[in-house]
Design a protein around this nucleic acid. Sequence first.
DNA 1: GTGGGATTAATTGTCTGACATTTATGTAGG
DNA 2: CCTACATAAATGTCAGACAATTAATCCCAC
Lengths: 237, 237
Amino acid sequence: MSDNLPKPEKQKDLSAAIAERIRQDILSGALVAGDRLPSESELSEAHGVSRATVREALKRLAAQSLIRTKRGATGGAFVNQQSFEDAYAQMASSATLLITLNNVDITTACEARFALERGCVRLAAKHRRDHHLDKMRAEIARQKDPELSDEAFCASDVAFHRALVDAAGNPVLSWQLAAAVEGIEPLMNMLTYRQRDRDAVISLHEAMVEALEARVGARLEILMDYLRDQTLRTALD
Amino acid sequence: MSDNLPKPEKQKDLSAAIAERIRQDILSGALVAGDRLPSESELSEAHGVSRATVREALKRLAAQSLIRTKRGATGGAFVNQQSFEDAYAQMASSATLLITLNNVDITTACEARFALERGCVRLAAKHRRDHHLDKMRAEIARQKDPELSDEAFCASDVAFHRALVDAAGNPVLSWQLAAAVEGIEPLMNMLTYRQRDRDAVISLHEAMVEALEARVGARLEILMDYLRDQTLRTALD
DNA sequence: GTGGGATTAATTGTCTGACATTTATGTAGG
DNA sequence: CCTACATAAATGTCAGACAATTAATCCCAC
């Protein structure tokens, strides 16, 4: 970050260079969501390269969901409205890759997850609505089924916490947290819960819903810490 | 995660489909970092498509920094070790796009940033080392220069908080937070600080370093809340 | 035998031109 | 008015060629 080279954009492939130019046009606002790029033929002429090279550049941008393409008479490449869903999917994918490919240990991952989530609970206590409580209670009910597989239990846990984060009413926060939690899910799926562990988690979930209903953020923070410790104990058995 | 469609991979372009197949091979562990993919000719034959189509698929993967390519006799496409730097760059880019292209207001962005950061300060208090304090003090010294432009002040502020997050000693956390903060930076750069605002921020920074040195996480949380309120006041003047 | 330069082979990067497919639009006929 | 067909524009795919890069190999002079 500190060594921000001013002009290091040589040595690159043409397709990468062209992709970068278009990318800058989008970032700078010269191209805005919905705009149609020139056709591949026009782009190839404008940049002095073949159509194949232009196509490779466009595929790079498409892979980052910066553009989408449509065939047919009114088709072409269009600048994408970077939806929260797109960004979420990308971040979650990024997080999953990073964690699985770098053998991040579950202690580190859990610590990060609970630390991030902890930061949201005061906002959640302030802005929560009844449907958030309903969702969380529904997940708790599901978690009480002793027949539930570890994986399903974990999925329900994720849904529970997602609702908690959504209660903060801040889309940027929901998006960041959801991506982080989903990235960690593969690791969490490797946990095996004894029934005693599950009971402890469920009790904490119930206490959290109560605290959320009463809008007591400080209590939620304490409960989050308990939950983190409980999860780490489960992981280290 | 719940609606994991089993076979929705029709209707797509060949290049996208092939990219997805290779991507799954990487995610599943069939291909690990450092492995060399078959040559473009071999891939085109194996998948029954032309080399141009294979190349478009590879460019998609390269755009996600899942692979890198090298020319020459021992060249080819190699599975990337997904470094924290790569993941960080991607997440930061994602965050920037999301925030700028969706006109997220600065209140929402600030709220999210400080909420996330707040979750880290207890860990930071626990794991901080002297060089973190040194870095933060150095940034404070820079911030005291009244000649500093608003943009430079903001950059120093980012560096200060980055050091704070790094002090938590958790790479996953550092990576998530740094990306979030950098994504918000374009918005923060639009703030104009009066000298009074700057003095207030600097005082809080100094108090934070003291609290961090004394390892008092609770005090750090309170200071973060003050800092958030101060920043929001600056934004809404 | 050894060092160094030329050769060679493998691979990605780029270009060209063609054809297939998709999709909106215009047009003629009922 | 509505349908069916032709048309045009754009992306998607293909085949083949050549350029550029790089490591390994060969060969020859010393």
